[in-house]
Each structure stands twice: as structure tokens, then as C-alpha cells.
Design a binder for these strands. Structure first.
Length: 867
RNA sequence: GCGAAGGUGGCGGAAUUGGUAGACGCACUGGAUUUAGGUUCCAGCGCCGCAAGGCAUGGGGGUUCGAGUCCCUUCCUUCGCACCA
């Protein structure tokens, strides 16, 4: 055995062994059927160029789980693929003049090498890329099935329009309301798009959250709020137009405040706004102003509340009172009816709006014991209470008032109770090149004609280079021009492609049968689904996970799979953030500096006192912390780490740095510790092995020292196993092993018995660590058990007999303050413990002469004496 | 703005069910070995205090024999907000 740990040779040898033995191949049934299956999946990466720290974190967590379950006897599937369509490839193409396909495939090749160098136990035979026609043809195929079932339909949607480049922009391409390339003010534009009717599944998507016991509560809460089921009343405010009676419809969850309505507000896109703008230039200008800027809801919600009267009036549905209709920039066309009733007395936004424009404010709810004044908003104004100033509804509580008002409206045919969802149907059309072509043909005679199944896939040409002006597919006749499958006349293809969320909504099923040419999925998907453990960034808590749940249910209803939910257990890993450094030049331009080039200065207590650029030694400014991004130049390439320390050190450091679900602010200051620990582990095994192997301890009388060590050892096995299986918290698992190694290092006994305990201990340690640092454990295991394979070893068992103790240490408190410790027989009862404690010196010192009021005994933990 | 989560030493974090706050590691300080060291080993390390002891888990208040953990309130940070993936 080598006396020194050499990560490079150890890791290369282990990887060659794994490859030679096909160690990571998952067995499809019936071969794999004897063992229980475990499908462990990490979210597939977008092939952006290189792995980043978030990838390393994500895939290490997944690999630790995969290897742990493999050792526990499961038939484990851990696949990998590429979320290969998307905007960055088009941006790179514009920057470098390279087609997105080539850029993407080059990135895949590089990143695959990186993943392999980290030693992940991936079954590469199932690799897939979503930009492969063999994959995306099934996007198209399912789209057509959904179209047949009415789950796909066409309607207009709002997009960001760059008037200079004449192109649709993604939200991230709009910066401060301007196009990122042209700097032109962005406009909203209505265009026809295809939608998937996810709202038809809203009720099930919401209800089934209760069945997801393996999901974090916070994710389920976020999804439930996103779906947003609300019970309310749909109310019609009547008005006359051209002699015809019409209704302005609003939805409200606070129908009990209807009598406090002093105005109505509609979105700028609302038909009434358009109507009024026809005859009012100022209003037309305001509506135009509202239509400027991006479509991002976060931005809209933070705009200053602005409005303008339309000059139109509607009638209050109960009193018939005249109510003015305003256009408000805070009313969203996409939610509810695109119009709201304004109740400034009891809605904070309406209150601010009314104050700004001098609209009347009327209090109609009395929250008991809370005063009301129209001059300043108070949080309780929005609380439930009893109706006042509300005519016949006076005195009713919330539910009573809602019931009565809904009933009255129904009688007049002006409204009814209604359930509304915040969830909107999923617009999947993208006016972009690098995505799945939507399989539709536009024929002048026949309209929109679906591409027949026999003509699938509609293949995306791979040699186009976008230039930022419009969709290159629309400028490519060989793609655009086609024959109408219905009438045979010349026709045009749809040039929009699908949202890339479509690609990622079912890839986890395709891993089961990536070679299946005749169907989207087959019986192998039936075997592997659902995913037993899914791991990915918390940033996907809503959209990706919700869309995947939706697609799974659609596929189920089409008879393709039987599962209701795709992911049984979910681990949402926290973001990896990093500090942002910059310098401001004389003309105010900001240059962001990569943290790898920054050196931190510390004082003699280790406290940070400054930061400087390594190359010139001059100070730099800090701009706080944020997600690793190109624009802030605060990304860290894991490759340096892997090359300098090896994959195992990188993996261990990542897992030790924080619990998987926590946000992690990057710092490489602990990497030396990880490296040091592995070197020490190697040396400890080496020193044992050179003395000659011993049979692992299997019973017999032990000295107190050896008994104590075995107690530590088996406590560690129990703790670490629980951390892997239940808690999924690897930092504490590693800490527990470190703690045990510290105890083992103190063992000086060199007897044969001690050597066998040490042999047992080292074997257990190597097994416990092998999911996290598999290469070094592979090598060490072969030294401890020549010709053995650590991956094929069963997980260590806790020896319960080693955990038996007859004495325990208890904490002594006086008035809740720690005053000492005492040892007591484990079997001691409450009364005996109380007696021992009251007589104990550390207690009497503090209770001396005072009357004991109460004694709290927690057996096995503490005794608290209250005086 | 709305929804979700988080805040503990100089730093990452531990404390799993209301029961010893700071495990484990980094950094730092002192020492030994080596003198080739970005090696290894030993010791110290929340703050105040000579000590006894006191204080301390973002801030303020509360419940409890006992609160990092529960409740109220407030500030700050991160994630998501439907065309980044």
C-alpha cells in the first residue's frame, strides 16, 4: 500500500474499475426485478458550457443517495441527460456566429467529461438530449394528442416586443424596460399562441399535494399558493352601451364589502379601456403608457399606482348608484376578469389609489374594538368583521354577508358565487429557433392543420445562425414551406417552437426507455416510475415541478403510464451564492471582478479587514452576495478545485459545507480541511495495514477503553445511517465520522484484540464514507479486504450490544441554570434521581438554606431544582 | 408589491421531540517536529471578568421550572412571480 494518498492515481484507478465492471448499470426488469428499485434523479443540466458549483452540489447529493441505496440492496437507476434547448445557445450563436446545435453539442461533450471526472455513479447508457429529434418528436406527438383532447388550444397572449429588432424578447432580455441589444423601449404586444390547459387539472394538482408526503412543506405551500384556489363572488356592474344592457364583470373574495364600492378599475388591456380611449386622447395616451414596459408581473406589481377615469359609469348592482370606471395600472388583465371593484375602505391598494385621486372612501366593515379613520390606512381595515353602513346587510358577519349578497345578485342575474384560480393556462409558444417545432401547418384553405403522426418528427434544421431579428425559421424556406396534409396545396409551417419547460416535463420517464423508437414510453417506464428521489434547485419549486406533475397526469389520462405523481420524494437544494466584487472607474463604469482573483485580508484574530485584487494588490469594493452569474462575474469553476485536490475532496467539501437544503454562500476556505481529513484517513488505514490485517472484531470480552470505542463506533453507525436515510443531511454525517476518527486516533492499545476492533472500526468508517468519497474508499477497502469491492458490500449494521450502557451522565440545573453534572445508573427512577441531585454538591452550593419549590426530572437528561 | 424560506462565534455550521448553545471543520494564536514546507503533531480559541460568576442565538416583547427551538412584533438577506433554466 502507498504510504501517501495520491488522489489522481486513486481516482483514475477506481473509475477504470467501475467502467470495466459496468458498475453503474441499472437493471431493467425482469433481471432487476428481484431487488426493490430505487430511481434517484437529479435535475438535468442546461449545457451552458461548464459545470458550476450548483451542479457539483446537486449531482453530489444525488450520487451520495444513489450509492447509499445501492449498498442497501436496491436496484438503483441514476441517469443523466441534457436540457439542451434554450435561449443561451441562441445568444452564444449571435456572439460567435456558431449554430446553436454545434455550441450545444460541444458543451455537452465537455460537461460530460467533467461529470465523469467527479465519479458519479451514472448509467450513461441512458443519456439523452432534448434537442435530439428522437426525443422531441414525442413532445410533438403528445402535443397533438392534447390538441385532440382539447388540452391544447390557441388564443392571444402578451409578449415583450422590441420595435427596433422587430422581435419578441424574453423577460430576461428586457432591462429597465428596454431591449437588451437595441436599448429601445419595449412594448407589450398581443400575438396568437398555443396554450396547455393546466387549469383543467388545477383541482387535482392542488388536492394531490396532500399525497406528497416526501415533499418539503415549503414547496407544497408555494405550489398551493401558486395554484391559488379562491372562493368568491362574480359580480356584474350593469351599464348601457348603444342602447344595449351590458355587464362589467369583476371577481372578489370580499363580496361582504360590496356596499363600500366607490369606483371600478379595469386593466389597460380591458375592452372598456379601449372603448373609452377611442374618444379620449389623454386616456389613449395613458393606456399606451401602461402598455409600455415588460410583461413581468414582479415589475408591474411594484409600479406606482396610477390611474385615469374613463368617463364611463356603471351602476352599483345593489343600490343602482352611479360608479365611475377607471383604468388602473395595477389591475392585471390575466387574473380574474381584468377588472376590480374599488373598495378603498377595506383594501390597501384601493385605499392608496383613492387617496391619490381623491375618490370617496367608505367604511362598511366594523372590526370589533378597532377604530376606523379614512385618513390613514391601518392593517385591520382588511380584517373580517360585521357589516355597517350596508343597508339591509348591516350586522351580518363575513360569511352571512357573502351568502346574502350572492343570493341577491343571483336573483337579479348580476352575479353568483364562483371559484377562481390564480393559476393560468400555460402558454407554450415561443418565437424562437432553438426549441421543439410546434407540429402545425397553416393552410389558407384549411386553417391550422396538425401534422399527421406519420410525418413526425418535424425536424428542426441544425445549421441556422440567428441574428437577433425575428425567428430564423421564418426566414428559412426549406423549413417554412410545405404541403397541406389535408388539401395538398402549398402551406406554411408554424415557426414558433415550444417552451423548454415542455422538454423537462417528462424527461424522467424517457430515461427508463431512451431507445424506444415506437412509443413515447414503454413498460420499463412503468417499472421505474415514480422517481423515488428527485433532487434539484429550490428555484424550480413552482414552475418545473408543477408542469411535470401536470404532464404526468395528462400522460396517465392518455393511458401511457399509471402513476399519478412523478416524484415521490423531493429534495430542494439551496442556491449556491457568492460575493460580488467590483471597481468603479473614473467615468462611473462598473467592472465586476471574479472572487477567484480576490484576496481577503484578515487581522491577527482572523477577522476580515479588507479585500484586494491579487494581480495589483489594490482594494476592491464588495456588492453583497448573489446567485453566481455571468453578469456579476461571481461564478466559480469547480474544475480548478477538482484538478488541485481531486474529486473526492471536492465532493466531501461540498457535502460538509452545509445541509443540502440551505442556501450556501461560496467560500473555499474549508477545502484544506477536507483534503487534510482524507489524507489522515489514508494514513490511519495505512498504519494499520502495514502492521498486517486483523480479523474484524466479532465478539469477546473487552477492556473499558475498547468497549467505549465500540460504543462510539456503533453510535456513529446509527447516527450516520439516520443522516443518510431519513435526514438527508450529510454535513452532520461527515462530522460524526470525523468525531469517531478523533476518538480512534487516541487508541494506543496494540493488543490483538485492539487490532481486531480497529479493523472493524476502519472497515465501518470506509463503508460509511464511501457514498461521499467513493474513489478513496474503493482503494482503502481493497487494502482492508483484499480483492473486495466496497460498492458491493452491504451497509454496516448497528451492533445493539455495543450500545448498552449502565451509567448515564445527567445535567444538573438550579432555577434552569446549568450548575453541574452527575453520573447515575441508567435504570434510576425519578425519585432516585431527585434524591441524588438534591444531595449533589453542585446543587447544594446554590440551594443552600433555600426552600426547594419544585424539582423537574427528565430521565436520561437532566434534573432542574427550582428554589 | 405578493408568495416562500432563512438570520447562532472571525467564517461554514451543530444542537433531530421545549432540556448542557457553539459538536465537526476552517481561520487565527502559541508551542513541538521538519528546516524544503501551503507537511505533521500538541495546546488555546463566543464576549466581559483575576476569579466566583455574569452576558450571549438579528432587534424588542411574551409563554415556561427551562426558549436558538413556541407566540406576538420589527428589521435584514435569499428564492419564485408564469418568455433564464
Amino acid at each position: 500500500m502507498q504510504s501517501q494518498y495520491d488522489p489522481k492515481s486513486v481516482e483514475q484507478e477506481a473509475r477504470e474499475y467501475w467502467e470495466r465492471t459496468g458498475a453503474f448499470r441499472a437493471q431493467d426488469p425482469p433481471v432487476g426485478g428481484a431487488r426493490p428499485k430505487f430511481y434517484c434523479l437529479s435535475m438535468f443540466p442546461y449545457p451552458s458550457g461548464k459545470l458550476h458549483m450548483g451542479h457539483v452540489r446537486n449531482y453530489t447529493i444525488g450520487d451520495v443517495m444513489s450509492r447509499f441505496y445501492r449498498m442497501r440492496g436496491y436496484n438503483v437507476l441514476q441517469p443523466m441527460g441534457w436540457d439542451a434547448f434554450g435561449l443561451p445557445a441562441e445568444n452564444a450563436a449571435m456572439a460567435n456566429g456558431v449554430p446553436p446545435a454545434k455550441w450545444t453539442y460541444d458543451n455537452i461533450a465537455y460537461m460530460k467529461k467533467q461529470l465523469q471526472s467527479l465519479g458519479f455513479a451514472i448509467d450513461w447508457e441512458r443519456e439523452l438530449a432534448t434537442c435530439d429529434p428522437d426525443y422531441y418528436r414525442w413532445n410533438q406527438w403528445l402535443f397533438l394528442r392534447m390538441l385532440e383532447k382539447g388540452l391544447v388550444y390557441k388564443k392571444t397572449g402578451t409578449v415583450n416586443w422590441d420595435p427596433v429588432d422587430q422581435t419578441v424578447l424574453a423577460n430576461e432580455q428586457v432591462i429597465d424596460g428596454r431591449g437588451w441589444r437595441t436599448g429601445a423601449l419595449v412594448e407589450k404586444r398581443e400575438i396568437p399562441m398555443y396554450y396547455m390547459a393546466i387549469t383543467k387539472y388545477a383541482e387535482e394538482l392542488l388536492g394531490a399535494l396532500d399525497t406528497l408526503s416526501g415533499w418539503p412543506e415549503r414547496v407544497k405551500t408555494m405550489q398551493a399558493n401558486w395554484i391559488g384556489k379562491s372562493h368568491g363572488v362574480n359580480i356584474g356592474f350593469p351599464y348601457e352601451l348603444g342602447g344595449e344592457r351590458k355587464l362589467l364583470r369583476v371577481f372578489t373574495t370580499r363580496a361582504d364589502t360590496l356596499m363600500g364600492t366607490t369606483f371600478c378599475a379595469v386593466a389597460a388591456e380591458h375592452p372598456l379601456a379601449a372603448l373609452a380611449a377611442k374618444s379620449d386622447k389623454n386616456l389613449a395616451a395613458f393606456v399606451d403608457e401602461c402598455k409600455r414596459g415588460s410583461v413581468m408581473e414582479a415589475e408591474l406589481a411594484q409600479l406606482d399606482k396610477k390611474g385615469m377615469p374613463t368617463g364611463l359609469f356603471v351602476a352599483h348592482p345593489i343600490t343602482g348608484e352611479k360608479i365611475e370606471v377607471w383604468v388602473g395600472n395595477y389591475v392585471l388583465m390575466a387574473y380574474g376578469e381584468g377588472a376590480v371593484m374599488g373598495v378603498p375602505g377595506h383594501d390597501e391598494r384601493d385605499f392608496a389609489f383613492a387617496k391619490k385621486y381623491g375618490l370617496p372612501i367608505k367604511s362598511v366593515i366594523d372590526v370589533e374594538g378597532r377604530p376606523y379613520s379614512i385618513y390613514a390606512w391601518q392593517p385591520w381595515y382588511a380584517d373580517y368583521g360585521k357589516c355597517v353602513n350596508s343597508g339591509k346587510y348591516n350586522g351580518l358577519d363575513y360569511q352571512g354577508a357573502v351568502d346574502a349578497i350572492a343570493a341577491d345578485l343571483k336573483k337579479k342575474d348580476l352575479g353568483d358565487k364562483q371559484v377562481t384560480w390564480r393559476l393560468r393556462d400555460w402558454g407554450i409558444s415561443r418565437q424562437r429557433y432553438w426549441g421543439t417545432p410546434i407540429p402545425i401547418i397553416h393552410c389558407d384553405a384549411c386553417g391550422d392543420v396538425p401534422v399527421p403522426d406519420k410525418d413526425l418528427p418535424v425536424v428542426l434544421p441544425e445549421d441556422l445562425v440567428p441574428d437577433g431579428t425575428g425567428n430564423p425559421l421564418a426566414k428559412t424556406p426549406s423549413f417554412l414551406n410545405c404541403i397541406c396534409p389535408k388539401c395538398g396545396k402549398s402551406a406554411k409551417r408554424e415557426t414558433d417552437t415550444m417552451d423548454t419547460f415542455v422538454d423537462s416535463s417528462w424527461y424522467f420517464m424517457r430515461y427508463a426507455c431512451p431507445d424506444q423508437a415506437k412509443a413515447m414510453v414503454d413498460e420499463r417506464a412503468e417499472y421505474w416510475m415514480a422517481v423515488d428521489q428527485y433532487i434539484g434547485g429550490i428555484e424550480h419549486a413552482i414552475l418545473h415541478l408543477l408542469y411535470s406533475r401536470f404532464w404526468t397526469k395528462v400522460m396517465r389520462d392518455l393511458g401511457l403510464v399509471k402513476v399519478d405523481e412523478p416524484f415521490a420524494r423531493l429534495l430542494t437544494q439551496g442556491m449556491v451564492l457568492n460575493e460580488i466584487f467590483y471597481r468603479k472607474s473614473g467615468d462611473g463604469r462598473i467592472t465586476y471582478l471574479n472572487p477567484a482573483e480576490i484576496e481577503l485580508k484578515v487581522d491577527d484574530k482572523g477577522v476580515r479587514v479588507g479585500a484586494m485584487l491579487r494581480s495589483d494588490g489594490k482594494p476592491v469594493e464588495s456588492d453583497g452576495i448573489g446567485t453566481m452569474s455571468k453578469s456579476k462575474n461571481n461564478g466559480v469553476d469547480p474544475q480548478d478545485l477538482i484538478e488541485k485536490y481531486g474529486a473526492d475532496t471536492a465532493r466531501q467539501f461540498m457535502m460538509f459545507a452545509s445541509p443540502p437544503e440551505d442556501t450556501l454562500v461560496w467560500s473555499d476556505s474549508g477545502i484544506e480541511g477536507a483534503s487534510r481529513f482524507l489524507r489522515r484517513l489514508w494514513r490511519t488505514v495505512y498504519e494499520h495495514v502495514v502492521e498486517g490485517l486483523a480479523p474484524a472484531y466479532s465478539g469477546g470480552a473487552l477492556s473499558p477503553e475498547l468497549r467505549a470505542l465500540r460504543f462510539e463506533l456503533h453510535s456513529t453507525v446509527a447516527k450516520v445511517t439516520d443522516d443518510y436515510a431519513r435526514r438527508q443531511q450529510y454535513n452532520t454525517a461527515i462530522a460524526a465520522v470525523m468525531e469517531f476518527m478523533n476518538a480512534l486516533a487516541k487508541l494506543s492499545d496494540a493488543s490483538a484484540l485492539a487490532r481486531s476492533v480497529r479493523q472493524e472500526a476502519l472497515q465501518v468508517v470506509v463503508l460509511l464514507l464511501s457514498p461521499i468519497v467513493p474513489h478513496i474508499c474503493h482503494a482503502l477497502w481493497r487494502e482492508l479486504k483484499p480483492a473486495g469491492d466496497v460498492m458491493r458490500e452491504p451497509w454496516p449494521q448497528v451492533d445493539e450490544s455495543a450500545l448498552v450502557q449502565d451509567e448515564v451522565e445527567l445535567v444538573l440545573q438550579v432555577n434552569g441554570k446549568l450548575r453541574g453534572h452527575m453520573r447515575a445508573p441508567k435504570s434510576a427512577g425519578r425519585e432516585q434521581l431527585e434524591k441524588l441531585a438534591l444531595a449533589h454538591e453542585s446543587v447544594t452550593r446554590f440551594t443552600d438554606g433555600q426552600a426547594v419549590k419544585k424539582v423537574v426530572v427528565v430521565p436520561g437528561r437532566l434534573v432542574n431544582v427550582v428554589v
